[in-house]
Structure formats: C-alpha cells, structure tokens
C-alpha cells in the first residue's frame, strides 16, 4: 500500500463498514433475545429469578464494554477455548446489550398502567395472555424510541471490537491509516460512515413513534 487514498482503500473501508453492520445485527438480535428473557425475569413472580437477573444486569452495567470484550476474547482463550474475534465480539456484545435492553424493556413493561393488568386479569386472561395480548403491545410502543436510541449506541460501540482484532469499520480505518498516514482524512471518512448508519435509525425511530402514536393518549386514564 502507501501513496494516496484510492478505490482499493475505500473498498477495504466499505468491507469494514459491512462488518460493523453485521456485528451490530448480531449484537442486537442476540442481545434482543437474551434481553427479552432478562426483562421477563426481572418481573418474574419468582423471587430467585428476579434476584438472579438483577445481579446479572448490575454486573454487566458496572463493567466497561472494553473489559467485557477482553474477557470474552482473552479470558476464554485462557481457559482453553479458542474463539474467533467475531465470536468473542458477538458474544460479548450480546451479553452487554442484553443487560441494557433487558432493563429498558423491564421499565417499559412496568410503565404500562397497572389498571391495564387488572382489566386483563378481570377478563380471566392467563398471565401469558395478559403479557402477550395486552401488556407487550403497549410496552413495545413505549419501548421503541429508547430501543432505537440504544441501537445507535450499539453501532458506535462495535468500534471497540477493533481491540480484539475484529476488522470492522474502525479497525479497517486504522489499517488503512497505517499505510497512508492520513489520519484526519481517514477518520473523517469513518466518522461520516458511522453517522450515515446511525442517522437513518434515529429518523426511523421518530417516524415509528408518530405512526404508533394512536392510543397513546389513553395509556393513563384518569
């Protein structure tokens, strides 16, 4: 390499951007699934389940993502499990996202007014039916803006996966810069690329909020 920024460099960065998206999707899907379980566990009728899930959330939220990534990559290697950078980054981000989404969603579920639970109970719906047909549809509406807001955080946080050698957008930028020594130009490109990924999500969230606005005014009747 060396010389000036050319099409090959840009393609390399483009590939990194794709991996950033890929890693974000893995983190969101994995974290979303585990986070949903965490959210339900946090409001479980069983005290043991509530406490265990709360401990998990506190542990993860009290640990920097960077440390979780190192633990995932080097820690697992130390106990004899050789994991690829992708697997380590995907698993670490999943655990991280699950703790936050679980907590965000628990709050959203609990912010559905209590009389809604009672009305559903009064109609003889089972706990699962109350959750699936009455509470969650309303909680999802409440959860959309903070969830998408957090998705933006995740996309940006995947840049930390570069420290375990995963070549996503940030890491590919570093590699290109190592050969070109044009940090400002390269990191500007990277910044714009991250923005281009995150901004549509924010717009999407706003649109979703407007479209799902129906019924919101009645969420908390007098």
């Amino acid at each position: 390499m060396g010389g000036h920024l050319n099409i090959n460099h840009l393609m390399f960065l483009g590939q990194g951007a794709l991996w950033t998206i890929g890693l974000s999707v893995i983190a969101l899907i994995g974290g979303g699934i585990v986070g949903f379980v965490i959210a339900l566990a946090r409001i479980s009728p069983l005290k043991f389940v509530r406490i265990a899930s709360a401990v998990y959330v506190q542990l993860v939220q009290g640990t920097p993502l960077l440390v979780i990534l190192f633990l995932g990559y080097f820690g697992l290697a130390a106990i004899g499990l050789k994991v690829s950078p992708l697997a380590a980054a995907g698993a670490s981000l999943t655990l991280y996202v699950a703790a936050y989404l679980g907590e965000i969603w628990r709050g959203c579920i609990q912010s559905v007014p209590k009389p809604q639970w009672e009305a559903a109970e009064g109609l003889a719906l089972s706990r699962t039916q109350r959750m699936m047909k009455v509470i969650l549809p309303q909680a999802i509406r409440i959860a959309t803006p903070p969830t998408v807001g957090f998705m933006v955080q995740i996309i940006k946080n995947t840049s930390l996966a570069s420290v375990v050698g995963f070549v996503e957008l940030m890491r590919s930028g570093q590699i290109v810069n190592n050969s070109l020594f044009e940090p400002f130009a390269i990191y500007a490109i990277i910044a714009v690329t991250y923005f281009a990924m995150c901004y549509p999500l924010s717009l999407f969230s706003q649109r979703l909020e407007r479209r799902m606005g129906r019924g919101r005014s009645n969420l908390a009747p007098a």
Partner: peptide, 15 residues
C-alpha cells in the same frame, strides 16, 4: 369467568 368487573377508569385496551 363468572365475575365481570368494570372500573372507574374504564381500562379499555388502547391498542
């Protein structure tokens, strides 16, 4: 199923 209850705040499901 045997008892119906109606509340002060209606509590219809808004969605």
């Amino acid at each position: 199923q045997d008892v119906g209850i109606v509340f002060q705040s209606y509590n219809l499901f808004p969605h």
